[in-house]
């Protein structure tokens, strides 16, 4: 049963473990987080499982006084992102490479456009997004997979618009490197 509380009031009450507020926040964000994780993983069961973990992590954070500083939704998406990354890291440790180890696009003389075209497939892209740094992955996912506006992302990530702009540009450049290489 939705209440008339503003998001701010809800968050205040939720941080005191108020059941009603927690329940409503859960309802407000559950599908968003689920969709976010599903789009990153294409796995319904995994998305369901990780979504519930996101909310339990939220409780754990409230309990340990390590909650959101500015944007609750940005904080929640960040938890979701971390869980997605953790999941793949655990599942497929050998295949994972961190962004630092990501190969620089070799100058093979092959047209990048062509190379990218060959590699461009949604699963490849999802896999490549998982290899971005956390912030790059978050900004790319929120902007292009979830359709949040630029300003919303800046608020969610507690960054200036200029910083987000630079971040997404770098992220796409990294994706290009990864995809062309693959």
């Amino acid at each position: 049963m939705p209440t008339d509380y503003s998001e701010e009031e809800l968050l205040e009450r939720a941080s005191n473990l108020d059941e009603e507020a927690l329940s409503e926040l859960y309802d407000r964000y559950e599908m968003k987080i689920y969709s976010y994780i599903y789009r990153r993983t294409s796995d319904q069961t995994l998305a369901e499982d990780l979504t519930s973990q996101v909310f339990l992590k939220m409780l754990e954070a409230i309990h340990n006084d390590k909650t959101w500083h500015s944007s609750f939704s940005g904080w929640l998406y960040r938890i979701a992102h971390n869980l997605v990354i953790d999941h793949y890291r655990t599942r497929d440790r050998q295949k994972q490479i961190s962004i630092d180890d990501a190969p620089i696009m070799p100058d093979t003389g092959v047209s990048p456009v062509r190379a990218a075209e060959i590699a461009l497939d949604s699963e490849y892209l999802k896999s490549a997004i998982r290899r971005l740094t956390d912030e790059q992955a978050l900004v790319i996912s929120l902007r292009f997979l979830e359709g949040y506006s630029f300003g919303e992302i800046a608020e969610m990530m507690d960054k200036t618009e200029g910083a987000v702009k630079a971040l997404q540009h770098r992220a796409v450049a990294t994706l290009r490197q990864l995809l062309v290489h693959e």
Binding site: A116, L120, D121, L125
Partner: peptide, 10 residues
């Protein structure tokens, strides 16, 4: 092109 694929996913 990358963004286009991302939008398809969306």
């Amino acid at each position: 092109r990358i963004i286009q694929v991302a939008q398809q996913i969306q």
